[in-house]
Design a protein around this nucleic acid. Structure first.
Lengths: 162, 162
DNA sequence: GGTGAAAGAGTTGGCTT
DNA sequence: AAGCCAACTCTTTCACC
């Protein structure tokens, strides 16, 4: 299938540059990748239009936001009629930063951030109160080694070709 | 504790606005939060300086990057002398997008993205080849419900002191 | 995809509270 | 210390090649 979200090497180099600093000027990026300002602008416009770029965002220190505690919570649904309603309910909770449907003994894996361990307890009670949730298992994060890394694409590195 | 990364309500509102679109103009943000362009600029400058804002980045569709397969991999170390070297080795792997030191039966939880299931096998072999790694357990993602959400801060409207 | 010019945004210094 | 205004510079954006 030839889909509409494939990108070429030039797109990859632009995305890599912008993942390090999305506010770099198009002139600056163009100089690095070998295009004019307007050409970079046009490619970025198309990347947004095609949905390759979803959002220009921000990496913030969670501690500064009072979110110094992280846990991964596995969630198991029961076999009832409410299974389809679990994900929308989890989406409403601001503490649930990430939610994946997974294979295995559990149905969902959620990444949850709170101010401290005690606050996770409240979130777990709220999750267990959702119709369709059978049980949860939590894995507490002691230290986040890294996350929110800039892109590292194989085709984006060599800028010195002749 | 009064540390150097605490933010006030105005900072929270600016960060929330920028997490939705980090390229919004300072004039636009200022209009929303009730500050002048220059005042927003100065606050953002200080947020960067204090390390609250770590980076202006980009949310990209992983499928467009050829990273359509996601798994969470738990990693258990053996008791040997190599434990401290495991995290740096995992950091070198571009497929490992996130790494957390965790409590429980395993030592690390890694979020890994590859093009397809077969490619995960190669990454798992590479991880198991790191000195100090005893075993791994993988959880395959079937569908990512959400991730990379804009900030949702409880304090973005009401102020609170400790 | 490039060029150039108008419109818009970022940046800085001086002043006010 | 924090904010506003205004001037200045740089960037984005768009018509045209």
């Amino acid at each position: 299938m030839q889909n509409n979200i494939s990108i070429d090497e030039m797109d990859a180099r632009i995305l890599t540059a912008m993942s390090v600093d999305s506010r770099r000027s198009y002139a600056d990026i163009g100089h690095e990748v070998g295009l004019s300002t307007a050409a970079v602008h046009e490619r970025v416009r198309k990347l947004i239009e095609r949905g390759v770029i979803r959002r220009f965002s921000l990496s913030v220190d969670p501690l500064a936001l009072g979110l110094g505690f992280t846990a991964f919570v596995m969630i198991r649904n029961d076999g009832g009629v409410h299974c389809r309603e679990v994900a929308p309910r989890l989406r409403e909770m601001p503490e649930v930063q990430e939610l994946h449907s997974v294979a295995g003994e559990y149905d969902f894996l959620a990444k949850i951030r709170t101010s401290h361990a005690r606050a996770l307890e409240d979130v777990l009670y709220a999750i267990k109160a959702i119709p369709g949730v059978a049980r949860t298992t939590s894995t507490v994060v002691l230290n986040t080694e890294f996350e929110d890394r800039p892109l590292r694409l194989p085709s984006a590195k060599s800028s010195e070709n002749s």
